[in-house]
Amino acid sequence: MSECLLCRSELGNDVFPYSTRFNDRTYRYRNCVRCGSSTIDPLPGPDELAAMYRQDEYHGVFYDQPEEEPSTVLDSFLSATGDGPHTLLDFGCGSGQFLKAAKALGFRAEGVEIDPVVRLKAAQASGCPVHALEELEQGSQRFDVIHLGDVLEHLPDPAGSMRALEALLSKNGQFFLEGPLETNPSLVRTAGVLFGSVRANLGRQAVGTYPPYHLFQTNARAQRAFFEERLGYKIDRFEVWETGWPYRSTVRIESIGARIRDVIGRASVLVAGVAGPSTRLGNRFAALLRPSSL
């Protein structure tokens, strides 16, 4: 029986976005009966993960875009870590844009990536050292801040990965995490579920053809519970906000359907802003976390 990757509870029914087919295998998102997250079922194995994250299929598509922007909360969150200079490790550093921005803020920044081609490109783009994880695990170097930006939801064992990374934190070190809240309340989420349900009821439920990159989808409450209850971390800061993704458009809109989605995306941002932080409306989070063992 598959279990929720965040709280380890039993999985229930299939939920939006329902299913996708990759590498001759169908994957479905199933709802967690306890925390409201959803987890992909079946969980991709090592061979499937390797196929999903080939350089030409993943990094070459998603991280070679010159217009890529660094974290929108980078400055405010990293300034909350105290007076520098600090050492920082970006776990899953991608193209190196976050490393470059952290370096500009005065951090002694380094990165981690699996693929050697990606490591070389990230190092060249950022001007920072980029390592294989094994290299750091076998050494004695420790970091004041470890950043995971849109990484946690890609990990088949998020709790185990966080525990392993604790060994690379210095005394009083902190994790800085950012990521999506795909099942959190928002107008975009409501519209997506509604459209998907209508299609399903009309017998037109589409099976996706994209790789199941996000192994779980979650909400603000469940994400906090994962950090506090399962990992036992102290949350120094936790913020939620709305971007309107994937409906809000940043390019020229050509069709009526795209215009409607853009309006929904922009309205979602507006409603979340008016509602205020206490409602926790939004599709992204950022958190500063401190393991209790340090």
Rank of each mutant, 00 (worst) to 15 (best):
T209F: 11
Q205F: 08
E229N: 10
E254D: 12
P246K: 02
E10N: 09
F16V: 11
S71C: 02
D47M: 13
S255T: 15
R30N: 08
P66S: 09
T279V: 14
Y63T: 04
H86N: 04
L152T: 02
E57W: 10
S9G: 07
D150M: 01
T190V: 13
A80E: 11
S19C: 14
Q217C: 09
D144C: 05
L152C: 06
V263D: 12
V188N: 00
E135Q: 12
R8M: 09
G82D: 04
A51M: 14
V112S: 08
T26A: 12
P180Q: 05
T183V: 08
F176L: 11
L99A: 05
C4H: 08
S38F: 07
Y27R: 10
G84H: 00
Y29L: 08
D144S: 05
L120A: 14
L43I: 10
P42E: 11
I260N: 14
G82H: 06
H86Q: 12
F175V: 03
A287R: 00
P116V: 13
T26I: 13
D47R: 13
E153T: 02
E242R: 04
A164N: 15
E10V: 09
F176E: 00
K121S: 08
G96P: 04
R142Y: 11
S95Q: 11
V271K: 06
Q65K: 12
I146D: 00
P180V: 01
A109D: 08
S9Y: 03
P156Q: 03
F227V: 02
G203Q: 05
V269Q: 09
P17N: 07
R280I: 00
G232A: 02
S76I: 06
N283R: 04
Y63R: 09
I146A: 00
Q217Y: 13
A222N: 03
N13Q: 13
G94I: 06
C4I: 03
E3I: 14
L6A: 02
P66I: 04
L202D: 08
A272D: 05
G149T: 01
A220N: 01
A225N: 12
V263C: 15
R199D: 15
L288A: 02
R119D: 01
L11S: 07
M52A: 10
A164R: 15
V33C: 15
L288S: 00
P42A: 07
F107L: 10
Q138H: 13
G273R: 13
L74T: 02
A200M: 13
R284Q: 05
S126Q: 02
A191K: 06
Y247G: 04
N184R: 05
K100C: 05
L177I: 05
R230N: 10
M1T: 15
Y53V: 08
F143H: 01
P156S: 02
G82K: 01
L155T: 10
L152Q: 06
G82F: 07
P42I: 11
I264H: 01
W245I: 14
D56L: 08
T183Y: 10
Y63W: 09
L152E: 03
R163Q: 13
Q174V: 15
S140A: 14
E242Y: 09
Q97M: 14
G45L: 07
N201L: 15
E153N: 10
R34T: 11
L270I: 14
F107C: 05
L105F: 01
I260K: 14
S255E: 11
